[in-house]
Nucleic acid binder design. Sequence first.
DNA 1: CGGAATCCGGGGGGATACTG
DNA 2: CAGTATCCCCCCGGATTCCG
Lengths: 118, 118
Amino acid sequence: MDYADTKCEENLRALEDALYVLGGKWRLRILAAMFSGHKRFNDLQRTIHGISARVLSNELKQLELNGLLKREVHVDKTPVVTEYVYTEYARSIDNVIVTLADWGQKHKEKITTTCQNH
Amino acid sequence: MDYADTKCEENLRALEDALYVLGGKWRLRILAAMFSGHKRFNDLQRTIHGISARVLSNELKQLELNGLLKREVHVDKTPVVTEYVYTEYARSIDNVIVTLADWGQKHKEKITTTCQNH
DNA sequence: CGGAATCCGGGGGGATACTG
DNA sequence: CAGTATCCCCCCGGATTCCG
């Protein structure tokens, strides 16, 4: 195994590490919704089409365990307000989402023009 | 709905478009393996730990339908050799994978140092 | 080697109802 | 609103077998 192979293996492992945290159907969508300003449970559920309350609840717990968001209960307000806010660390995922969204944008354009051309 | 909201909605939709093609458990892993030089069916299955033959087969078909790879059967060789090669268009995904792998790398470092600190 | 076909089991997740 | 609990169905995908 030469240097190039080693480098590739490292990349594959790094990709695994990322997907372990960000993979799955909902993780990135939830983070993207939060980056878009949505913070409350029902608000998130309404924004992320198709997700059920139970799944959203579980995913939020996982994201919290991974240090990507923090659950904040404001008892001082009436009625009590629960907010999910992303951590400073979660901002490092911005790049990932933007890169992915950019690709999606370009891909959609490509599909559209391809369909027009025949 | 003001400009910022519209922009956010666009980003969410673009993310959906990307995840429609690249989402799921295996898509990015398969593409990453291909970028690493793996081209043949059993080679890919060996590289991508945990994937079964049927799932790999199905995923490859989907990736081909989306124009990300091409199935090439070289009848001129003996025995016949089947290769899966990514298209020129698939190179646009390089960014996504690199960004994700970078984040995974950083994340692993963070986890490691965090564990050492307490 | 590169797959397709069939069988089959578990568990992920939807629906609904309920609670604080 | 912000979830939890229970039920239960469906289908994803593993294992196995077979084929060119």
